[in-house]
């Protein structure tokens, strides 16, 4: 996805990813993640459509709103960037949503990932929700004592006790792991067993070949000429104003948080 700007290819990838998401029962999670890209998409549309980098100085104006001129080339490129991002997420999310992290790490260990790294990854993934719960408890304790930290002022008082407490918890955990021969030599075994059957091999080879073919094709064809879709003025204005509204909301929230500290 990262080597092409061709909307046709990207739309095919999105369609394939959508089918994958629906058939694997992860459609809702995938849709949620795609919706979460809205602020990024809004920023891309605003910046690219108002100040396109690919066509200067011969950009084609699509519409004018007050002092702002929207250009076809910028808006087209912005939509391609958004499509690329969506394609990347839609294809990867079903894998992440349907695979238990431990299975993923066990599979990676089979292709050479050191078990120490897999262990650190597993511990990190387990620690995140624990720390999040502790952070909630600390913030609740702050509130109970009348401390209502906002903005940057809330960060250090919330983080430091959580980390200090967690370090003790981790030390206990490590003692338990050492008692179970952490760091000892020899072949490590795992409770998780990931078998690589014929279907898996075919899928891996197909993915690898597809990836290499895609990169090769993109390199052979060279950089694509700047895409320029002739947007009806009303459509261009609607897309950019909608994006601008999201963009301004993000900025307003940041401004409030910064001044609240």
């Amino acid at each position: 996805m990262l080597v092409t700007f061709e909307p046709g290819v990207l739309l095919v990838v999105i369609a394939a990813g959508a089918v994958l998401a629906v058939t694997s029962g992860t459609g809702t999670a995938t849709a949620r993640t795609v919706i979460a890209l809205a602020p990024v998409a809004a920023s891309i549309v605003v910046i690219q459509s108002l100040a396109p980098a690919v066509c200067r100085p011969d950009c084609t104006p699509a519409a004018t709103v007050g002092p702002l001129t929207i250009y076809d080339e910028g808006l087209s490129r912005a939509l391609v960037f958004v499509t690329r991002l969506v394609a990347m997420e839609v294809v990867a999310l079903p894998l992440l949503a349907t695979t238990h992290p431990a299975d993923l790490f066990a599979a990676l260990r089979r292709i050479g990932l050191p078990y120490q790294v897999a262990l650190l990854l597993s511990l990190s993934l387990q620690l995140v929700p624990i720390l999040r719960r502790e952070l909630d408890a600390v913030l609740a304790a702050h509130r109970a004592r009348g401390f209502r930290g906002r903005g940057l002022g809330a960060l250090a008082p919330a983080l430091v006790p959580v980390v200090a407490g967690s370090f003790e918890r981790m030390t206990t955990l490590v003692l338990a792991l050492e008692a179970r021969a952490l760091g000892a030599g020899g072949t490590r075994t795992s409770f998780r067993r990931v078998e690589l059957g014929p279907v898996g091999v075919v899928a891996c080879v197909a993915a690898l070949v597809g990836c290499l073919a895609g990169v090769g094709l993109a390199v052979a064809r060279g950089p694509a000429p700047p895409l320029s879709i002739a947007f009806p003025p009303a459509v261009a204005v609607a897309i950019v104003l909608g994006s601008l509204a999201v963009f301004v909301l993000v900025l307003a929230r940041a401004g409030r948080a910064l001044t609240a500290g």
């Binding site: 650190l120 511990l123 620690l127 940057l152 959580v162 980390v163 981790m170 030390t171 929230r253 948080a257």
Partner: peptide
């Protein structure tokens, strides 16, 4: 022992602080 204790903690702190600033809109 220190590596196994500190690296996951560092990862979790990175993740948590990043989530916290996103939550606060910083």
């Amino acid at each position: 022992a220190l590596i196994v204790a500190l690296v996951p903690l560092a990862v979790a702190v990175n993740f948590l602080a990043n989530s916290l600033v996103a939550l606060l809109g910083l």
